[in-house]
């Protein structure tokens, strides 16, 4: 069992955040975790699109090869989009890391157990799909190496972090998709992008 708490972990990951880092959340808890760690224009908050976070980050990484892209998502989202592991591994990019905050639950719908509460091993699936660097993190002592994996290690990286299932306050970012898109694009591409 893990004693890692997702909110603290995301704050720790994004402390002294590199200027060039772009972060894409998954829907639900990971979106609130990202907002809680500090709102900046270089965050793209996904409020839906279940199963899509890894591929959104991948497309972004392909379009912005000079910048590091971090996808912060949950086990429910990643389970729905596992084909992304095969697609990304088949056509890899170095500037992408996917961190899955795995509490083994569908958090927004009543905490029903996900398949990672059962036998499914997302890091193992990613590795078998061909992702070159994968890890499962479950201890505080592994958080520093996780920062390296998330922010520096040549990608594609998939790091699954086992976190405690807990009832947390909603921390809601702006929810207008068109606003978030324009804000993100103008931050990295300039005012003409809006």
């Amino acid at each position: 069992m893990s004693d890692l708490h997702r909110r603290d972990l995301v704050i720790e990951l994004l402390k002294d955040r590199p200027k060039d880092l772009l972060v894409v959340s998954g829907l639900g808890s990971s979106c609130w975790d990202l907002a809680n760690a500090g709102d900046v224009a270089e965050n793209f908050y996904v409020w839906g699109a279940m199963g899509g976070a890894a591929m959104i980050g991948y497309g972004l990484a392909r379009a912005q090869p000079q910048r590091r892209v971090l996808v912060l998502t949950g086990d429910g989202d990643m389970l729905m989009g596992m084909g992304a592991f095969a697609t990304i591994a088949n056509n890899p990019v170095q500037n992408l890391a996917i961190v899955v905050l795995d509490n083994g639950r569908f958090g927004e719908t009543g905490g029903q157990p996900t398949h990672t509460s059962g036998p499914a091993d997302l890091a193992g699936i990613a590795k078998a799909a061909g992702i070159p660097t994968t890890a499962t993190i479950a201890k505080q002592a592994e958080v520093e190496p996780l920062k390296e994996l998330a922010l520096k290690t040549p990608g594609p990286v998939v790091a699954v972090v086992k976190v405690v299932y807990e009832d947390l306050k909603f921390v809601l970012p702006a929810n207008s998709g068109s606003y978030l898109k324009d804000r993100f694009r103008t931050a990295i591409l300039g005012e003409d992008a809006a």
């Binding site: 772009l22 894409v24 793209f44 699109a49 899509g52 976070a53 591929m55 959104i56 980050g57 991948y58 497309g59 972004l60 990484a61 392909r62 379009a63 912005q64 989009g81 084909g83 992304a84 697609t87 898109k181 993100f184 694009r185 990295i188 591409l189 992008a193």
Partner: peptide
């Protein structure tokens, strides 16, 4: 996957 990747690509210009 393609719809999401293209949305991400557009976010990146």
């Amino acid at each position: 996957e393609g719809i999401y990747a293209l949305a991400g690509a557009y976010l990146g210009g």
